[in-house]
Design a protein around this nucleic acid. Structure first.
Lengths: 151, 151
DNA sequence: CCCTGATGGTCAAGCGCCTTGACCATTGCG
DNA sequence: CGCAATGGTCAAGGCGCTTGACCATCAGGG
Protein backbone atom coordinates (compact mmCIF):
# COMPACT_ATOMS: atom_id res chain seq x y z
CA UNK A 1 0.00 0.00 0.00
CA UNK A 2 1.18 3.50 -0.74
CA UNK A 3 2.70 5.01 2.39
CA UNK A 4 1.49 8.50 1.56
CA UNK A 5 -2.06 7.16 1.48
CA UNK A 6 -1.42 5.73 4.92
CA UNK A 7 -0.32 9.12 6.11
CA UNK A 8 -3.63 10.62 5.05
CA UNK A 9 -5.63 7.93 6.78
CA UNK A 10 -3.65 8.30 9.96
CA UNK A 11 -4.07 12.04 9.91
CA UNK A 12 -7.80 11.79 9.52
CA UNK A 13 -8.10 9.10 12.16
CA UNK A 14 -6.16 11.06 14.72
CA UNK A 15 -8.03 14.24 13.95
CA UNK A 16 -11.32 12.43 14.34
CA UNK A 17 -10.44 10.76 17.62
CA UNK A 18 -8.86 13.86 19.10
CA UNK A 19 -11.69 16.16 18.07
CA UNK A 20 -14.21 13.72 19.53
CA UNK A 21 -12.23 13.78 22.75
CA UNK A 22 -12.35 17.59 22.77
CA UNK A 23 -16.08 17.51 22.12
CA UNK A 24 -16.69 15.11 24.99
CA UNK A 25 -14.62 17.27 27.30
CA UNK A 26 -16.45 20.43 26.36
CA UNK A 27 -19.87 18.92 26.82
CA UNK A 28 -18.87 17.39 30.12
CA UNK A 29 -17.51 20.71 31.28
CA UNK A 30 -20.59 22.56 30.05
CA UNK A 31 -22.93 20.19 31.86
CA UNK A 32 -20.96 20.52 35.08
CA UNK A 33 -20.98 24.30 34.71
CA UNK A 34 -24.77 24.17 34.56
CA UNK A 35 -24.88 22.52 37.94
CA UNK A 36 -25.00 18.83 37.13
CA UNK A 37 -21.89 17.30 38.60
CA UNK A 38 -20.64 13.77 38.82
CA UNK A 39 -21.94 12.85 35.40
CA UNK A 40 -19.82 11.17 32.77
CA UNK A 41 -20.35 11.13 29.01
CA UNK A 42 -21.77 7.62 29.22
CA UNK A 43 -24.63 9.05 31.25
CA UNK A 44 -25.34 11.41 28.40
CA UNK A 45 -25.73 8.52 26.00
CA UNK A 46 -28.10 6.90 28.47
CA UNK A 47 -30.18 10.08 28.72
CA UNK A 48 -30.40 10.23 24.95
CA UNK A 49 -31.75 6.69 24.86
CA UNK A 50 -34.24 7.21 27.66
CA UNK A 51 -35.45 10.68 26.75
CA UNK A 52 -38.05 9.93 24.07
CA UNK A 53 -40.18 7.40 25.91
CA UNK A 54 -38.07 5.68 28.53
CA UNK A 55 -36.75 2.18 28.03
CA UNK A 56 -35.56 -1.03 29.61
CA UNK A 57 -32.22 -1.86 31.14
CA UNK A 58 -31.55 -4.44 28.46
CA UNK A 59 -32.41 -1.97 25.72
CA UNK A 60 -30.08 0.56 27.25
CA UNK A 61 -27.33 -2.04 27.44
CA UNK A 62 -27.68 -2.74 23.72
CA UNK A 63 -27.69 0.99 22.97
CA UNK A 64 -24.50 1.54 24.94
CA UNK A 65 -22.77 -1.62 23.87
CA UNK A 66 -22.25 -2.94 27.39
CA UNK A 67 -23.60 -5.86 29.41
CA UNK A 68 -26.99 -5.53 31.01
CA UNK A 69 -25.31 -5.69 34.41
CA UNK A 70 -23.28 -2.62 33.56
CA UNK A 71 -26.41 -0.87 32.31
CA UNK A 72 -28.28 -1.82 35.47
CA UNK A 73 -25.50 -0.36 37.56
CA UNK A 74 -25.65 2.84 35.54
CA UNK A 75 -29.39 3.06 36.10
CA UNK A 76 -28.89 2.43 39.83
CA UNK A 77 -26.57 5.38 39.91
CA UNK A 78 -28.88 7.66 37.95
CA UNK A 79 -31.79 6.58 40.12
CA UNK A 80 -29.85 7.32 43.30
CA UNK A 81 -29.12 10.79 41.96
CA UNK A 82 -32.74 11.32 41.09
CA UNK A 83 -32.38 11.52 37.34
CA UNK A 84 -34.40 8.43 36.48
CA UNK A 85 -37.23 6.43 38.00
CA UNK A 86 -37.94 2.71 37.69
CA UNK A 87 -41.57 1.73 37.26
CA UNK A 88 -43.52 -1.30 36.18
CA UNK A 89 -43.54 -2.03 32.48
CA UNK A 90 -46.99 -1.63 30.93
CA UNK A 91 -46.83 -4.72 28.73
CA UNK A 92 -44.22 -6.99 30.27
CA UNK A 93 -44.18 -8.03 33.91
CA UNK A 94 -40.56 -9.15 33.66
CA UNK A 95 -39.34 -5.77 32.55
CA UNK A 96 -39.14 -2.49 34.41
CA UNK A 97 -39.64 0.79 32.60
CA UNK A 98 -36.89 3.30 33.21
CA UNK A 99 -37.97 6.90 32.70
CA UNK A 100 -36.37 10.30 33.13
CA UNK A 101 -37.55 12.37 36.08
CA UNK A 102 -37.98 16.12 35.81
CA UNK A 103 -34.41 16.47 37.05
CA UNK A 104 -33.33 14.06 34.35
CA UNK A 105 -35.04 16.12 31.69
CA UNK A 106 -33.45 19.28 33.04
CA UNK A 107 -30.08 17.59 32.86
CA UNK A 108 -30.78 16.48 29.31
CA UNK A 109 -31.55 20.04 28.34
CA UNK A 110 -28.32 21.17 29.96
CA UNK A 111 -26.40 18.61 27.95
CA UNK A 112 -28.11 19.77 24.77
CA UNK A 113 -27.17 23.33 25.53
CA UNK A 114 -23.61 22.35 26.26
CA UNK A 115 -23.43 20.41 23.01
CA UNK A 116 -24.88 23.35 21.12
CA UNK A 117 -22.39 25.64 22.78
CA UNK A 118 -19.46 23.45 21.79
CA UNK A 119 -20.77 23.01 18.28
CA UNK A 120 -21.41 26.74 18.02
CA UNK A 121 -17.84 27.58 18.91
CA UNK A 122 -16.65 25.19 16.29
CA UNK A 123 -19.08 26.54 13.76
CA UNK A 124 -17.64 30.00 14.22
CA UNK A 125 -14.21 28.67 13.39
CA UNK A 126 -15.05 26.81 10.21
CA UNK A 127 -18.32 28.36 9.08
CA UNK A 128 -21.91 27.23 9.37
CA UNK A 129 -22.10 25.85 5.85
CA UNK A 130 -19.12 23.60 6.43
CA UNK A 131 -20.67 22.59 9.68
CA UNK A 132 -23.77 21.22 8.00
CA UNK A 133 -21.66 19.26 5.55
CA UNK A 134 -19.52 17.97 8.35
CA UNK A 135 -22.48 16.73 10.27
CA UNK A 136 -23.89 14.91 7.26
CA UNK A 137 -20.57 13.20 6.58
CA UNK A 138 -20.09 12.22 10.19
CA UNK A 139 -23.57 10.82 10.44
CA UNK A 140 -22.88 8.70 7.43
CA UNK A 141 -19.76 7.37 9.09
CA UNK A 142 -21.47 6.75 12.39
CA UNK A 143 -24.05 4.34 11.07
CA UNK A 144 -24.33 0.97 12.72
CA UNK A 145 -23.08 -0.22 16.07
CA UNK A 146 -23.59 1.07 19.57
CA UNK A 147 -22.93 4.65 20.54
CA UNK A 148 -20.50 4.31 23.35
CA UNK A 149 -16.85 4.30 22.28
CA UNK A 150 -14.74 1.27 23.07
CA UNK A 151 -11.41 2.76 23.86
CA UNK B 1 -31.24 29.55 23.66
CA UNK B 2 -33.10 28.45 20.58
CA UNK B 3 -34.05 24.80 20.91
CA UNK B 4 -33.58 24.11 17.20
CA UNK B 5 -30.01 25.30 17.51
CA UNK B 6 -29.59 22.85 20.34
CA UNK B 7 -30.86 20.11 18.10
CA UNK B 8 -28.17 20.86 15.56
CA UNK B 9 -25.45 20.85 18.15
CA UNK B 10 -26.63 17.58 19.62
CA UNK B 11 -26.79 15.99 16.20
CA UNK B 12 -23.26 17.01 15.38
CA UNK B 13 -21.95 15.97 18.76
CA UNK B 14 -23.48 12.53 18.56
CA UNK B 15 -22.33 12.06 15.00
CA UNK B 16 -18.82 13.02 15.96
CA UNK B 17 -18.62 10.78 19.00
CA UNK B 18 -20.23 7.84 17.26
CA UNK B 19 -18.12 8.12 14.13
CA UNK B 20 -14.99 8.32 16.28
CA UNK B 21 -16.14 5.16 18.02
CA UNK B 22 -16.58 3.44 14.66
CA UNK B 23 -13.15 4.59 13.56
CA UNK B 24 -11.51 3.24 16.71
CA UNK B 25 -13.28 -0.07 16.26
CA UNK B 26 -12.22 -0.41 12.65
CA UNK B 27 -8.61 0.38 13.35
CA UNK B 28 -8.57 -1.98 16.30
CA UNK B 29 -10.08 -4.69 14.18
CA UNK B 30 -7.70 -4.01 11.30
CA UNK B 31 -4.67 -4.18 13.56
CA UNK B 32 -5.86 -7.46 15.06
CA UNK B 33 -6.48 -8.83 11.58
CA UNK B 34 -2.86 -8.08 10.73
CA UNK B 35 -1.72 -10.31 13.55
CA UNK B 36 -1.23 -7.90 16.43
CA UNK B 37 -3.64 -8.99 19.10
CA UNK B 38 -4.27 -7.76 22.61
CA UNK B 39 -3.66 -4.13 21.70
CA UNK B 40 -6.05 -1.37 22.63
CA UNK B 41 -6.42 2.03 20.99
CA UNK B 42 -4.45 3.64 23.82
CA UNK B 43 -1.47 1.61 22.71
CA UNK B 44 -1.81 3.17 19.30
CA UNK B 45 -1.55 6.64 20.78
CA UNK B 46 1.54 5.53 22.63
CA UNK B 47 3.10 4.19 19.45
CA UNK B 48 2.42 7.47 17.73
CA UNK B 49 4.24 9.34 20.48
CA UNK B 50 7.20 6.99 20.56
CA UNK B 51 7.61 6.39 16.85
CA UNK B 52 9.60 9.48 15.80
CA UNK B 53 12.47 9.30 18.28
CA UNK B 54 11.32 7.44 21.38
CA UNK B 55 10.48 9.27 24.57
CA UNK B 56 10.20 9.12 28.32
CA UNK B 57 7.47 7.66 30.47
CA UNK B 58 6.60 11.09 31.83
CA UNK B 59 6.40 12.53 28.31
CA UNK B 60 4.14 9.72 27.27
CA UNK B 61 1.94 10.33 30.29
CA UNK B 62 1.51 13.97 29.30
CA UNK B 63 0.76 12.97 25.73
CA UNK B 64 -1.90 10.52 26.79
CA UNK B 65 -3.33 12.66 29.56
CA UNK B 66 -2.82 10.05 32.29
CA UNK B 67 -0.61 9.76 35.35
CA UNK B 68 2.96 8.68 34.90
CA UNK B 69 2.16 5.52 36.83
CA UNK B 70 -0.43 4.58 34.26
CA UNK B 71 2.00 5.36 31.45
CA UNK B 72 4.70 3.28 33.14
CA UNK B 73 2.28 0.38 33.38
CA UNK B 74 1.47 0.75 29.69
CA UNK B 75 5.16 0.69 28.83
CA UNK B 76 5.64 -2.40 31.03
CA UNK B 77 2.98 -4.11 29.02
CA UNK B 78 4.40 -3.07 25.66
CA UNK B 79 7.87 -4.09 26.78
CA UNK B 80 6.62 -7.50 27.89
CA UNK B 81 5.07 -7.98 24.48
CA UNK B 82 8.26 -6.95 22.78
CA UNK B 83 7.02 -3.78 21.15
CA UNK B 84 9.23 -1.34 23.04
CA UNK B 85 12.60 -1.40 24.76
CA UNK B 86 13.79 0.63 27.74
CA UNK B 87 17.31 1.96 27.58
CA UNK B 88 19.41 4.56 29.34
CA UNK B 89 18.69 8.14 28.47
CA UNK B 90 21.58 9.84 26.66
CA UNK B 91 21.39 13.12 28.55
CA UNK B 92 19.58 12.38 31.81
CA UNK B 93 20.52 9.60 34.19
CA UNK B 94 17.18 9.83 35.95
CA UNK B 95 15.21 9.13 32.80
CA UNK B 96 14.95 6.01 30.71
CA UNK B 97 14.53 6.24 26.97
CA UNK B 98 11.64 4.19 25.64
CA UNK B 99 11.99 3.20 22.00
CA UNK B 100 10.03 1.06 19.57
CA UNK B 101 11.55 -2.29 18.65
CA UNK B 102 11.32 -3.67 15.14
CA UNK B 103 8.10 -5.43 16.18
CA UNK B 104 6.82 -2.12 17.47
CA UNK B 105 7.53 -0.45 14.16
CA UNK B 106 5.81 -3.29 12.31
CA UNK B 107 2.81 -2.85 14.54
CA UNK B 108 2.81 0.88 13.90
CA UNK B 109 2.79 0.24 10.18
CA UNK B 110 -0.12 -2.16 10.63
CA UNK B 111 -2.03 0.50 12.53
CA UNK B 112 -1.33 3.02 9.79
CA UNK B 113 -2.58 0.60 7.19
CA UNK B 114 -5.69 -0.12 9.21
CA UNK B 115 -6.36 3.58 9.62
CA UNK B 116 -5.83 4.15 5.91
CA UNK B 117 -8.18 1.27 5.18
CA UNK B 118 -10.89 2.69 7.38
CA UNK B 119 -10.42 6.18 6.02
CA UNK B 120 -10.42 4.80 2.49
CA UNK B 121 -13.76 3.11 2.97
CA UNK B 122 -15.15 6.33 4.30
CA UNK B 123 -13.62 8.29 1.46
CA UNK B 124 -15.43 6.09 -1.04
CA UNK B 125 -18.71 6.93 0.61
CA UNK B 126 -18.38 10.68 0.73
CA UNK B 127 -15.75 11.46 -1.89
CA UNK B 128 -12.05 12.23 -1.62
CA UNK B 129 -12.49 15.98 -1.91
CA UNK B 130 -14.89 16.06 1.04
CA UNK B 131 -12.48 13.88 2.90
CA UNK B 132 -9.70 16.44 2.66
CA UNK B 133 -12.02 19.17 3.87
CA UNK B 134 -13.21 16.98 6.68
CA UNK B 135 -9.71 16.29 7.85
CA UNK B 136 -8.83 19.97 7.87
CA UNK B 137 -11.91 20.85 9.88
CA UNK B 138 -11.36 18.06 12.35
CA UNK B 139 -7.75 19.00 12.85
CA UNK B 140 -8.82 22.50 13.63
CA UNK B 141 -11.20 21.18 16.23
CA UNK B 142 -8.68 18.81 17.72
CA UNK B 143 -6.14 21.44 18.69
CA UNK B 144 -4.90 21.50 22.24
CA UNK B 145 -5.14 18.94 24.97
CA UNK B 146 -4.01 15.36 25.19
CA UNK B 147 -4.95 12.81 22.60
CA UNK B 148 -6.59 10.13 24.65
CA UNK B 149 -10.34 10.54 25.13
CA UNK B 150 -11.67 10.88 28.63
CA UNK B 151 -14.78 8.84 28.51
C1' DC C 1 30.68 23.80 45.80
C1' DC C 2 26.97 22.39 48.00
C1' DC C 3 22.12 22.81 49.33
C1' DT C 4 17.44 22.82 47.78
C1' DG C 5 13.52 22.62 44.93
C1' DA C 6 12.06 20.47 40.67
C1' DT C 7 11.83 16.44 37.86
C1' DG C 8 11.93 11.22 36.15
C1' DG C 9 10.75 7.01 37.89
C1' DT C 10 9.00 3.25 40.90
C1' DC C 11 6.35 0.75 44.67
C1' DA C 12 1.98 0.09 47.05
C1' DA C 13 -2.78 0.41 47.82
C1' DG C 14 -7.29 1.33 46.40
C1' DC C 15 -11.22 2.32 43.43
C1' DG C 16 -14.41 2.76 39.47
C1' DC C 17 -16.50 0.59 35.81
C1' DC C 18 -16.90 -3.27 33.40
C1' DT C 19 -16.99 -8.37 32.70
C1' DT C 20 -18.24 -13.41 33.30
C1' DG C 21 -21.22 -16.72 35.50
C1' DA C 22 -25.18 -18.24 37.77
C1' DC C 23 -29.74 -17.72 38.86
C1' DC C 24 -34.99 -16.46 39.09
C1' DA C 25 -39.43 -14.65 36.99
C1' DT C 26 -42.10 -14.02 33.04
C1' DT C 27 -43.15 -14.56 28.33
C1' DG C 28 -44.74 -16.46 24.06
C1' DC C 29 -44.41 -19.92 20.63
C1' DG C 30 -44.86 -24.85 19.13
C1' DC D 1 -49.02 -27.10 28.54
C1' DG D 2 -43.98 -27.27 28.14
C1' DC D 3 -39.84 -25.08 27.26
C1' DA D 4 -36.57 -22.13 25.08
C1' DA D 5 -36.01 -17.17 25.01
C1' DT D 6 -35.97 -12.91 27.35
C1' DG D 7 -35.71 -9.14 31.28
C1' DG D 8 -33.57 -8.61 35.45
C1' DT D 9 -30.67 -9.32 39.61
C1' DC D 10 -26.87 -11.09 42.75
C1' DA D 11 -22.02 -12.29 43.30
C1' DA D 12 -17.26 -12.31 42.27
C1' DG D 13 -13.45 -10.83 39.84
C1' DG D 14 -10.35 -8.11 36.78
C1' DC D 15 -8.27 -4.42 34.32
C1' DG D 16 -6.78 0.16 33.95
C1' DC D 17 -6.53 4.06 36.24
C1' DT D 18 -5.80 7.07 40.46
C1' DT D 19 -3.73 8.93 44.85
C1' DG D 20 0.14 8.88 47.99
C1' DA D 21 4.70 8.06 49.31
C1' DC D 22 9.25 7.50 48.20
C1' DC D 23 14.15 7.46 45.99
C1' DA D 24 17.60 9.12 42.48
C1' DT D 25 19.16 12.67 39.69
C1' DC D 26 19.24 17.28 37.87
C1' DA D 27 19.90 22.25 37.88
C1' DG D 28 20.40 26.83 39.66
C1' DG D 29 21.34 30.24 43.28
C1' DG D 30 23.68 31.19 47.67
Amino acid sequence: MDPSTNEDGVGLAFALLASAARMAERIDEGVARRGFSGLRPTHGFAFAYLAPAGGTVTGLAAHLGVTKQAAAQLVDELEAKGYVRRGPHPRDARARLVELTEAGRACTRAAEEAAAEAAGAWSEAIGADRMALLRRDLERMAEGGPIRPTW
